[in-house]
Write a protein that binds this DNA or RNA. Sequence first.
DNA 1: ATGGCTTCCGGAGGAAGA
Length: 254
Amino acid sequence: MKLATWNVNSLKVRLPQVQQWLVDNPVDVLCLQETKTVDEKFPVAEIEAAGYQVAFTGQKTYNGVAILSRHPITDVTKNNPLLDDEQQRIIAGTIQGIRIVCAYVPNGQSPDSDKYIYKLNWLKALHEWLAQEQQQHPELALLGDYNIAPEDRDVHDPAAWAGQVLVSEPERAAFVRLQEMGFTDAFRMFEQPEKLYSWWDYRQMGFRLNRGLRIDHILLSAPLAARCSACVIDKVPRKWEQPSDHTPVIATID
DNA sequence: ATGGCTTCCGGAGGAAGA
């Protein structure tokens, strides 16, 4: 069972790349973030033609998440029931007995902004909801764009980024709290290449200079972590024409 | 450097991302 996550930065623009990537990487489950697509315009037929069922929730212009699956998706939940939030950032479903949670964590803009407060509150509510979900679904995977680089080794220039949004202590503490409730960062279960990231700034040749951050993650509950045999970041789509600024992360569950 | 790039909406240029 292969589970993947990819912030596509507009599914309308990136649909051909998603289709190509799924041909090259026929994963069982692909979680998408920043679809930026209202539900009425979601490309259901194109996704189904690629061999996937799909659950999604979107809005105009911003946010939007989706789960693509080769297997049936049941018990779909849209958004966090514990948080009154108009922004479409969470979709969950059960696939082959595994509870899949696809999340687009708020960016936070900067530590002195209202959006940062919203981000920390959002993460707190996520933690509380996952505690409930975990009770009902011991096999739980949280995939998505966390907008948090957990450690300095996940940052191309830790000194330059120190204290900024995506790396600040309160954000990293929220990530640690998810780990403390039993989730494992699948990527760090295995030996990995140095300086491998999941996002690179579009500006200033960020990708070519490898000025990146590892902010897209797959967290696995203990029963799933015990069955996880690999986790990789696929940089290939970041090299394509007109790429997303994020690239996919894939975990293999035996 | 109030920057840079990309996408959105809307039909110009500001907002938002990270």
